[in-house]
Design a protein around this nucleic acid. Structure first.
Length: 278
DNA sequence: CGATCTACCTGATGGC
DNA sequence: TGCCATCAGGTAGATC
């Protein structure tokens, strides 16, 4: 579900809310969410530790602990992190509950159980979490120059949507934001990276950075099923600013005449305006 | 090599 | 009302 703007929204809330908090107790339910290590190993490395920092790389959240360990969280399609009082009854699909000594809990809720939580040693992060080591540049956390962006495109000839969504090239963009970025850039999802003029590359880069920052400003996108909510259970507002995503058969917000087209690309729904995007 | 599928899951929705 | 098919923010791995 969540892409970079949603994960960044949660990261900022966590940074305000859980840094300096010490973990009193951790409980794990089921076998799917904590699957890389035993529950016992996971729990023993969390209990007693204090959270000293909250980082994000692409769609991954990293909780830094004062023990040198790092808790890595990926929400995948339906994961949620919720800050709740201890007494609040557990809702369905609550898989991990962290209770702080200062009171209050951090809960990981995930109906589809694609999401994952695991703990690694900060020193051996690259070996213990290889998927993090191969992630590409995070366009919000570590902005690159548009000339480096151009080089990255030229070195990887592929369709634009595949390029934007390849986590090992650029980390954090998924199905919603790739479509919104391409609309903002006026480019079709199936154009090849190595066919763009330098003006088009600059337009794409600018659209990428601006779309992600705007989305963060509005707290991310919450679709009809309310799959994404922030740490306090509140939905985002960027969906109100979507230009194409899930707007098929509705008039394009730019040209106001053509209907937004829905297509399939790599098995995913893809939305674009055939007039405004070339 | 890329493109295309499948698997991993639950739940919402729409057609009949 | 039920039943079945389809679809959903992601990613890894198999297969063609």
């Amino acid at each position: 579900m969540p892409e970079l703007p949603e994960v960044e929204t949660i990261r900022r809330e966590l940074e305000r809310d859980v840094i300096g908090k010490r973990i009193k107790q951790t409980t794990v339910h089921g076998t799917r969410t904590v699957r890389r290590q035993t529950k016992k190993q996971f729990i023993s490395r969390l209990e007693g530790a204090k959270i000293t920092g909250v980082d994000r790389k692409g769609k991954y959240l990293l909780l830094q602990l004062d023990t040198g360990d790092v808790v890595i969280i990926h929400l995948r399609m339906s994961g949620q992190l919720l800050r709740l009082p201890n007494k609040e009854p557990a809702i369905k699909h609550t898989h991990v509950v962290v209770t702080f000594t200062q009171g209050g809990q951090l809960r990981f809720v995930d109906p589809r159980t694609f999401g994952e939580v695991f703990v690694v040693s900060g020193e051996n992060l690259a070996e213990e979490a290889p998927e993090l080591a191969t992630l590409g540049v995070d366009p919000v956390e570590e902005p690159i120059s548009w000339t480096d962006f151009a080089r990255l495109m030229m070195a990887n000839p592929m369709k634009l949507k595949a390029f934007l969504m390849d986590q090992n090239l650029i980390a954090g963009i998924g199905n919603i934001y790739s479509d919104e970025i391409l609309f903002a850039a006026g480019l079709r999802y199936d154009r090849m990276t190595d066919t763009l003029s330098s003006q088009e590359i600059r337009r794409l880069y600018r659209a990428l950075v601006e779309t992600l920052h705007e989305a963060i400003k509005y707290g991310g996108s919450t679709l009809a099923d309310e799959g994404y909510v922030d740490l306090n259970g509140r939905p985002g507002e960027f969906q109100e600013h979507h230009k194409v995503y899930a707007r098929d058969r509705q008039p394009c917000r730019r040209c106001r005449r053509n209907q937004v087209t829905k297509a399939k690309f790599q098995g995913r729904s893809t939305y674009f305006c055939a007039v405004c995007q070339v």
